Computed example of a mutant assay.
Amino acid sequence: MIYLPNELSKISKNVISSNYLNLCLYETRKNDDYYEVLFDDYALVFINDGYKMIHTKKQDFTINKNEILFFTKGSYLIKDCVENNYYNSIIICFKESILIELIYKYKALLNSNFTTDEHIFKLNSNELLSSIFTSFLPCFSYKTNEDILKLKFEELFLALLYSKNNHSFLSFLKTIITNFKLSLYQIFSYCEQDFQSVNDMAKISNMSLTTFSKNFKQSFGISPKEWLDNKKFEKAKFLLEFSNKNITEICLEVGFNSPAWFISRYKKRYNKTPKQFQKSKNLYFLH
């Protein structure tokens, strides 16, 4: 059993990890037997060379060169088949939280009346989608920050929404919304508001902290504390780059109580201290 995205480094040396998504360039020169893969996140797979066979309880899939396969969370039997002694694919595993935010941002496009209960399906590719997938390749050669990866993923998401005959993808997105334990209004309100604590989020839902935390994780795929910290660090990063406030002021403004904790966690997340990032990016501090 291979667990993705946690074990991407076991199948490839070309892996980029971030808080929202994991990017992998997977290559092989042998026809493997079927092996079981458990996806803990959603995944998109784009085939550059060769083809892939997937076995499920309901049906078998074959995805060929320049085609896209969408995986929901779950376990699948997969075989990589080489052509001309080579198989190559791009794998993007992504959190439910980033998917929810994009659903909200582009909710006007989700006007499909189709329904689906599928957990894996092909997506129609085209020249634009192929070019977006291959545009991820330079990221493996040059250090790429999380903001660029998120923007590129948003570009891919939007291209999928606008592509023709994409009813399965649109229907799946609508299925996600209808299956949430939290109301649509509440989910989208979380994306727009600045909360200082998980307790504040639970209060707006009229739930106990325990019930809210359980339902939130079922809906978003991560704990509300992790989701809230991600939002706070995003805001802190923006303030570090575009304001003239000092580290302590920014720490307190985004809702962290301890500057020492903030500095330590920021460095672990971005491989730079807040001050190092500020000095390298902020015009107020550049000399």
Rank of each mutant, 00 (worst) to 15 (best):
C24S: 11
S12G: 00
S125N: 00
D60K: 08
Y51S: 04
L8N: 14
V37D: 08
Y51E: 10
S163A: 11
E127G: 01
N179A: 05
N246L: 12
S17N: 01
G221A: 08
S171V: 05
F157P: 06
K214F: 13
E7H: 00
I63Q: 12
S168V: 07
L25P: 08
F71C: 08
P224D: 05
F277P: 10
S18N: 01
S125L: 12
P5T: 11
W261I: 10
A202E: 06
T116D: 07
L173S: 12
N206I: 14
N199K: 05
S264I: 11
I54P: 09
Y162M: 07
V15L: 03
I2K: 03
P138V: 05
S125F: 06
I177D: 06
F61P: 03
F172E: 02
L123G: 00
S163N: 14
K275V: 10
T211N: 08
C191V: 13
P138W: 09
S243M: 01
N282G: 11
I98V: 11
N166R: 11
E249H: 01
P274D: 09
D60V: 06
N199D: 14
A236F: 01
N126S: 05
Q218E: 14
D41Q: 14
F70K: 15
L228Q: 03
L239H: 05
L109T: 00
N215A: 02
F70C: 06
H287Y: 08
L4T: 00
S168G: 04
K52S: 11
T116W: 03
F238T: 05
Y34P: 01
Q59I: 04
K272E: 14
K203R: 13
S112R: 07
L129T: 09
K57H: 05
Y270F: 07
S223N: 12
D32E: 15
R29K: 14
F277A: 12
K107D: 12
K267L: 03
S183L: 05
D200E: 15
K30Q: 13
Y20E: 06
S183F: 08
L182T: 04
I120T: 10
E127M: 07
K214Q: 11
N166F: 02
K174L: 10
S135M: 07
L156C: 00
F233A: 09
S131H: 13
I177N: 00
A108T: 14
I132W: 06
K57I: 11
Y270D: 02
L25I: 10
S9H: 13
H119L: 13
F71L: 02
R29E: 15
N31W: 11
K214A: 04
K214E: 07
K231I: 04
I54V: 15
K214G: 05
F172C: 04
E36D: 06
E241W: 00
F172K: 15
L23G: 01
Q193W: 10
